[in-house]
């Protein structure tokens, strides 16, 4: 099946292996949605401007529309479908559900994956543009609403559910979502 325009690749997604032939032009986003029926990852703009296709690549946030599927070989891909453990939702998912952190739901998988990435980046002490003290020894800044908003700003929500999303991320952080996220990654 391999040719000058296609290759057989193996993707590691949500702890499972998928081997499939792909057109070299196929993005990770289209491989997930069109080839593997993992349609939870959404296509909002297909050019890296909206964040709807945010997944975790080796535990870090990435937009799947700007990633070729062939380049994702050997990396651990976590999508929205890989967060819950059976019927038990990830704490970030649970907080979005309870606090109504969405409306139409289309940006939601990206918001949730992004929030999980944010909590991990914050726990690692990574500063943001609104962090006052960015010295490495300063450690993680307080995870204020302002910090969350700044770090989540790559994820657009046109319905305007931002207030509830920030409330949900705040609650998930307080509920220790970071620890369980590490288990996922």
């Amino acid at each position: 099946m391999a040719s000058s325009t296609s290759s057989v690749i193996t993707l590691h997604i949500n702890g499972e292996k998928f081997t499939l032939p792909v057109d070299h032009r196929t993005t990770l986003l289209d491989a997930l949605r069109e080839r593997l029926t993992l349609t939870g990852t959404k296509k909002g703009c297909d050019q890296g401007q909206c964040g709807a296709c945010t997944v975790l690549l080796d535990g870090r946030r990435a937009v799947a529309c700007l990633q070729l599927a062939v380049a994702a070989e050997g990396r651990e891909v976590t999508t929205i479908e890989g967060l819950a453990e059976g019927d038990r939702l990830h704490p970030v998912q649970q907080a979005f559900l309870e606090l109504d952190g969405y409306q139409c739901g289309y940006c939601t998988p990206g918001q949730i994956c992004s929030a999980i990435g944010v909590l991990r980046e914050h726990a690692e002490g990574r500063p943001s543009a609104v962090t006052d003290d960015i010295r490495p020894e300063a450690g993680p800044p307080p995870l204020t609403a302002e910090e969350i908003r700044e770090r989540m700003s790559g994820n657009l929500c046109r319905c305007g559910a931002y207030v509830a999303i920030v409330e949900a991320v705040t609650r998930a952080a307080a509920d220790g979502a970071t620890e369980s996220e590490e288990a996922v990654a």
């Binding site: 990852t41 929205i80 939702l89 998912q93 559900l97 739901g105």
Partner: peptide, 19 residues
């Protein structure tokens, strides 16, 4: 009340038209 389709939306199970 939380949304009746809420779990579908936060788990990615909710399928939209192109899906």
């Amino acid at each position: 009340r939380t949304r009746v389709e809420g779990v579908e939306k936060v788990t990615g199970a909710a399928r939209y038209a192109g899906e």
